[in-house]
Amino acid sequence: MEPFERYRDVVDDFDAFLAACQRGLPMAVRVNTLRATPDEAVAAFEAEGVDVERVDWHPHVLVPDTDKPGSTWPTYHGWTHGQEEVSAIPATVLDPQPGERVFDACAAPGSKATQLSAMMDDEGTVVANDNNLGRLSALRFNTERLGVTNTVVTNQDARNFSLKPFRDDDEDDEAVAFDRALVDAPCSCEGTIRKNPDALDDWNLGHVEQVASVQKGILRRAVQVTKPGGVVVYSTCTFAPEENEAVLDHVLAEESVDVVDYDLPLEHVDGLTEFQEETYDPRVANAKRVYPHHNDTGGFFTAKLEVTAA
């Protein structure tokens, strides 16, 4: 927990924060509404003798009382997908609509990409990209297992993502730009400490800064391939401001984009406008930080961006 000492002055009730980080986290599942309703999923679990708790802020997130949700009928049938509770936040904030073109820049292993498809009722297109070839097989496995058919999987470096595969020879990039984009960025994963107790083992500031530079590149490109008026959501499962508010601050300065407020029906605090010696664009306060002690979940950071005309 040593790396968390740097957050002592910015986290409210720091002792409660540390205590929560040391507790384990129950497994949660998201109901795949392409296949079943939450009521059907609950009935299927209960028929197997598994009690289910529903979370109050999201109708599709359930906590089944079992160590092995994978060995149940709802999971086998693709009615449910193992997904941490806070991991359901970014797609909910992005709010994709049926028929839209949506980009998921760092999609593997596909929890959020398949949530996007479900929200779109499998209509429109989700371009699910990941630069890690090894993780692409999990992404493909999960989309197919969940019966998703509106996803195109690509294996590009999101920092210079090319739209060429999607346009006909007589079209330009604007013709195939996205309505919405999700950047659930690779990060130092501090917020997953309750699930992965060794998450901090290799923590060092150099790594944080290195990852932050990749995050900036990915978010900038996601903004560039999204139509003016479109929405981009930036999220991480980490607390480090270098990977969160500082990334937004950089992209606000470089791209035609705004960071806007949104409703989040979970306890949270605003994005930080200063940390240690740094100050950030005041608009980053519209981002939301969810700490583990707030709602007894993992930690998460989510920002909603609107692309403005260049």
């Binding site: 989309t143 998703v148 509106n150 999987v153």
Partner: peptide
């Protein structure tokens, strides 16, 4: 493969389109 939507024909440089 079955894909809910349309793509250029042919489509290159993508790993999957819909489901096998």
């Amino acid at each position: 493969w079955a894909f809910a939507g349309d793509l250029p024909n042919p489509t290159r440089d993508v790993e999957a389109a819909g489901m096998t």
